Structure formats: structure tokens, C-alpha cells
Computed example of a mutant assay.
Amino acid sequence: MKILLTGSTGFVGKQLTLRLLEEGHQVFALVRNEKKAEMLKGAVAANDQNRLNILHGNITQEHGGLSAKTIESLKGSIDCVYHIAAYLSFDDEEKEQLYEINVGGTKNLLELAKELQVKKFFHVSTAYTLGNQEEAVEQLHSLERSFLNYYEKTKCQAEHLVFDYADHFQVNIFRPSIIIGDSKTGEAESTFALYGIIRSFQLMKRKMERKGNAPAQKVKFVCYQGAAQNLIPVDHVVKGLVAGLRHADHKTIYHLTNDHPPSNAEVFELLKDELDFHNVELVSPDRQNELSDQEKLFNEPLSVFHAYLKKTIHFDNKNAEQLFKQAGVEPVDVTEDVLRTIISGKNRI
């Protein structure tokens, strides 16, 4: 198949691009950053290079910034568009950029797909478009709800846009939860979520080691210990996206999520163990006023996620289960060993 991707130089997009090329597909990667495009090409196996086509453009521009000549050359030949590119920020002061990229960019890609007469449009969203709810179904969520941040709202708006084009081509929405590294290698290209916390632990450990002796009192780390976090390896997400090529049903949403998410306490115990940093104490949020200035810095990478960390969300994923079954693909089982591989990050980039 001939496949057009946005976000192909990002964490998920790169892994999906490599997998599609390995399976013999021809990939047209829409990129705006020349340096990242070269890095993507450098990661592609020699015998797959001739099937990777770089298209220079920008999703914030009409038709993704592609020229009329390029559009004409691709018209009628693209089997599927994977729209992965997005702007991830929980800072509501960045509303303009969030809307421009996540909503406006999706609209531009939908119009491009319409112009190219594509057969399928796959939109990679997020499992967290449900707002304050604690139960998520594989259906469009109403926009008339309270969202935790503007990022969530723009992703929900984009989903509604995608379904508005259902008369022009097959549309599907894939909702990954919190994406972590590869389940087998631990490889990840991310500094967000879990990786910001890992980095915080590493920096604090080094700071304490430089002092030469551990303080008598353990460093406090604020944690909603009982809540579970829906961590899912990137290879599980890629498996689901590839399975969709042949088995996704029109106007269907798929939750690429973890059936048995670990609790915060379980994750942080593994963190302490794998990073060999035991001089830390998990404390409940009601003890935040006890934090020293140094502990406040230690906890800073986690503060933006507190709204998510304090609750366990159940994601219905019956559609995704059926998709994997039809494709004859085994979902990734997020075991303790998998989490240890992710955290230890021996192959983290």
C-alpha cells in the first residue's frame, strides 16, 4: 500500500514508519524539519530506503503545505493517511498553538486527504479525551464536558472533525493511553510523563551522591499511591495501528490501552529498585506542605500530571480486542519485567 504519514519523525510515528517499510509498504512522510527528516532516513534499513518518500510540508498550512504539483502526482494513489502529528502541552497559556496544530492541522490534513481521494484516514488521538470522567468508551465523547486541560479539548474537537469526513473516506480513531518505550528493548524517544519522572529521580540521586553521605531523613516524593496509570508500550500501539490497515471498521474508535495498569505505588517501587535509589519516601498529596525547597524541585516534573495521577480510569477496549483478534496479533502484556525493561532504559535514546 501507499501510505502518507504525519508525525513520522516523532516517538510513535518513527516506529510506525519503520514497521510499515519492513512490511513492504511505500511511505510518504510529511515533515517540516529537515534535520529530523535526515535522522528518520538514517534509521531506515538500506533495503527499505527506496520506499521512503519525504514530503516537505507543514500541517498548519492549507493542504499540509504541499504544492499543487505534488498533490496532483499523488491524487488517487494514497491508500491510507495516518495523522499522528500533534502538539502536546498542558499549559493553557498555549491555547493558540494547541488549537492551530491539533484542530487546524487536522482540518488541513482532512482536506488534503479529500483532495488526494484517499481510501482511509486514521487519526491517532489520545485515550484522555474523556475529561473528568473515569469511564471511557470507544465512542466520540461529547464536547459539552469539563476537560482537565485545553490539550484534551483540542484532541476531542479533532476527533469530531474526523468523523465529519466519514462520507469521503473510511475514518478511524486510535486512542493510545500513556505511551512508554518498547516492551522488548526499552527503547524510547520521549522526555514526557514517566520519562520526566525517571529523569527527576536520576538527578536527585546524583545530587545526593555528590554530597558524599545520605541524609538521615528520606526525600519525599508526592504520589497518589493507590491510583493506577495506564502505561502502554509503543510496540503495542504500533501493532494496533498496523492491524487497522486491513481490519479496522469504518467509523470505529479503538482504545490502545492496558487492561491491567499498574498502580502508582508499584511503578515507583520499580523506579526505586531499577535506579537503585531507595532513599526516597512516597507521601500522600496532603503532605505537600512538608516539602523542602529541594523536594519541591524533585517533585516538579510530576506536578502537571496530578489531575491524572489521582484517579484510575477504566478504558473499554472491546473494539481493539476484536481488531487484534482479526489481525491474528497478540497484544503486549505489560508485566513487571516489561516495566523493568522500560525503566532501566538500557536502549533509551
Rank of each mutant, 00 (worst) to 15 (best):
A37R: 08
A37Q: 12
E38G: 05
E38K: 13
E38F: 02
M39A: 15
L40D: 12
L40Q: 08
G42K: 01
G42Y: 11
G42N: 13
A43K: 09
V44L: 10
A45R: 14
A45P: 01
A46Q: 14
A46T: 06
N47P: 00
N47M: 09
N47W: 12
D48K: 03
Q49Y: 04
Q49H: 00
Q49M: 01
Q49D: 03
N50T: 07
N50H: 07
N50C: 00
N50G: 00
N50D: 13
R51H: 01
R51G: 01
R51P: 00
L52C: 11
N53W: 00
N53C: 03
L55W: 11
L55F: 12
H56A: 12
G57E: 10
N58C: 08
N58Q: 11
N58K: 07
N58S: 08
I59D: 00
I59P: 04
I59Q: 10
T60G: 06
Q61H: 10
Q61Y: 09
G65E: 12
L66S: 05
L66M: 04
S67Q: 12
A68M: 03
K69N: 12
T70L: 14
T70V: 13
T70G: 04
T70N: 13
I71L: 14
I71C: 14
I71D: 06
E72L: 06
E72N: 11
E72K: 14
L74N: 04
L74P: 00
K75V: 07
K75E: 15
G76F: 03
G76E: 09
G76V: 08
G76D: 11
G76L: 04
S77A: 13
S77V: 06
